[in-house]
Design a protein around this nucleic acid. Structure first.
Lengths: 138, 138
DNA sequence: TATATTTACTTGCAATTTGCAAGTGCAAAT
DNA sequence: ATTTGCACTTGCAAATTGCAAGTAAATATA
C-alpha cells in the first residue's frame, strides 16, 4: 500500500494531498452525479483516463477510507465501489467545483442540475449525499 | 503563453483543468487567508513549493484571469498579485477543502477560523471574499 | 466441452512534470 | 561602487503520466 505524503498540517493542504490531482475528484463526481460504481464505468467517462491511473486512484481512495470495494452482487468478477461517509463529505467540494466551472469556464452543464444548485445549494448537497448513502447500503 | 487543455465540457472537469493540482489552490489559500501577495511570501509557506513551479503557476493564474499582477506601489522590482472576481469565486471551494481536511485528516487548524466556519459558513465565505476585493482595490 | 467475451487490472516504455540547486538580471539600499 | 533583496530562469535527475499491449479469472456462447 502506497503511503500518503503530508506536506503540512494545514487542512487545505492535507485535503489536496488526497484529492488534489486531475483524476480523483472526477471518479467521485461519477459516483455522486452519475451513480457509477465499477472500474469499467469509470473508464467510459468523457475524460478518458488511463487504465493504470484509474487502478492507482481507486486503490488510494480505498486506502484512504473514501470508498469501499466489494464483490458485486451478480458477478464474482465484478467489483462495486461505494462512498463511505468520508466520501460523502466530499460532495460539497464537488458542488463548488461545478458552480465555479459553470460560471467561469465555457462548459456544458446539465440545466436541471444547475437550476437545482442555484435554487438551493444546501438542499442539493444534502440530496446527493443521501443518494450516495442509500447506494452504499443497497 | 501555455495553453490550457480541456479534457471535457463537464464543469467539474474544466474547474480541475485549471485548479486541480497540488499547488494552485495553496497559492490562492495564502492570498485569501494570509493576505499574501508576493512571490517571496508564497515561497515561505509551510509546504515549500519549488521556485519554478511557483513561477509557472502564477503565470497560469494570471493567464486564466484569476489573479492580476501589478508593480508594487513602493518598489519597482516587486510585484503584487491580487484576486480578480474570478479568483474571489474560488473562495467557496477553498472553504470546503478546509472543512473536509479539518474533519477527516490530522490537521492543525486555527481554532478561530474553524469556529467561524462552523457558526456560519456562508457568512465566513462572504467575509473572506470581501477582504480579497478590498485588497484588490487598495 | 471448447472457445470467446467480459471485467479488472498489470506491465513496459516514452514523454511530460516535478523537485532541487544554482545562476541571472534588475532595482534599491549602504 | 558594492552589496542586498526580489523575482525569476536554467539544468538536470527523479517521479509521474499516458499510451498500448498483455494477463488472469469468471462468465457466456457454440
Amino acid at each position: 500500500m502506497k503511503e500518503l505524503k503530508q506536506r503540512s498540517t494545514c487542512p487545505v493542504s492535507t485535503s489536496l494531498d488526497v484529492l488534489g490531482d486531475k483524476w480523483t475528484l472526477l471518479i467521485l463526481r461519477d459516483m455522486v452525479f452519475s451513480g457509477k460504481s465499477s472500474y469499467g464505468q469509470f473508464l467510459q467517462s468523457a475524460e478518458k483516463m488511463a487504465t493504470n491511473v484509474l487502478a492507482d486512484r481507486l486503490a488510494l481512495l480505498e486506502a484512504q477510507g473514501i470508498v469501499t470495494k466489494t464483490v458485486a452482487a451478480d458477478k464474482k468478477s465484478k467489483f462495486t465501489y461505494r462512498l463511505t461517509e468520508k466520501g460523502v463529505d466530499v460532495v460539497p467540494i464537488i458542488v463548488e467545483l461545478v458552480r465555479w466551472g459553470a460560471k467561469h469556464a465555457a462548459t456544458i452543464v446539465d440545466p436541471a442540475l444547475l437550476a437545482e444548485l442555484e435554487s438551493g445549494k444546501d438542499a442539493a448537497v444534502a440530496k446527493y449525499q443521501q443518494l450516495a448513502r442509500d447506494k452504499a447500503l443497497a
